[in-house]
Nucleic acid binder design. Structure first.
Length: 268
DNA sequence: CTTTCAGCCTGACGGC
DNA sequence: TGCCGTCAGGCTGAAA
């Protein structure tokens, strides 16, 4: 499940292979994704140079000479550099061939991802909140935007209008480190505690991106889990197990249709 | 305005 | 062994 760190790791992994390269060919075997792949995409991009490899939230942006491709990995997607003539695996949906001979393969079993073309701005990027690792985001913003809101803090920090790229794993971990219960109302948390939470959100994401670096060296033909999955998670996926701090039993509740694990003793 | 929820999709897993 | 139900997750758009 690609969270922001994996998308950033993917961006860094593919960039050396695609940046400033000409798109020779785009092959779509299965265009039925989260949204249908843009009609005529292979013809739209053929011959263009990739002039930028960027990321915004969990979207990858391949900037071309006359527009850009927006790529989302959904929940099960991956984009890897393949050796030429690598056999197609099940769920390999798209292949991008570059002028230097490099080949990118998009693999996505659940097909929640996206490949969209726009010659201008992408609608998907229009109303996004700040990047969590930028100076536009901090705990003060959380406190300001949380005022008067009854929504639980966990879905609140996972709302893309508040801050982008904080998925279930890192929301859970940041709240544990901050000692805040995931079901506490967003409007009933002090500024002081929000400042702590803001820092932990940054820390947990930055550490995961750093660990993702271990993935980069074998980005070619790699289909294994990214390095940061080795990162020890204190609460995510550990409902019923012991809290690493107090030894108590971790509780698993549902908030906004998502599993939310926390320690009733350490988080208030 | 805020909040909730169905739907998209497949693989893994548990129960029988 | 296989069948069936449930779950997981990001994001959107409609409903409440």
């Amino acid at each position: 499940m690609p969270e922001l760190p994996e998308v950033e790791t993917t961006r860094r992994g593919i960039k050396p292979w695609v940046h400033q390269q000409k798109i020779v060919r785009l092959i779509i075997r299965q265009g039925s994704l989260r949204w249908p792949v843009t009609e005529g995409l292979p013809e739209l991009v053929r011959g263009q140079i990739v002039v930028g490899v960027m990321r915004r939230a969990k979207y990858l942006i391949l900037k071309l000479e006359h527009g850009s491709m927006l790529v989302h990995l959904g929940m099960s997607g991956s984009l890897r550099v393949a050796k030429p003539d690598t056999p197609w695996r099940k769920h390999d949906h798209i292949e991008l061939q570059l002028g230097n001979g490099a080949t990118l393969r998009y693999h996505d079993p659940r097909r929640f991802g996206a490949w969209l073309w726009s010659s201008g701005e992408h609608d998907q990027l229009a109303h996004l909140g700040p990047e969590p690792l930028s100076s536009d985001f901090d705990g003060e913003r959380l406190w300001q935007m949380g005022k008067g809101r009854k929504m639980a803090v966990k879905p609140f920090i996972m709302d893309n209008k508040i801050v982008v790229g904080v998925g279930n794993i890192y929301a859970s971990e940041a709240l544990f480190r901050s000692g805040i219960r995931p079901n506490r109302a967003a409007g009933r948390i002090s500024k002081k505690r929000y400042l702590v939470l803001g820092e932990h959100i940054k820390d947990v994401l930055a550490a995961a991106i750093e660990q993702g670096g271990t993935t980069l060296r074998d980005f070619v033909n790699s289909s294994g889990e990214p390095g940061y999955f080795q990162q020890t998670l204190a609460v995510y996926g550990r409902g019923g197990e012991d809290c690493i701090d107090c030894g108590g039993v971790l509780k698993d509740i549902r908030l906004g249709q998502r599993s939310s694990v926390f320690c009733p003793n350490c988080q208030r």
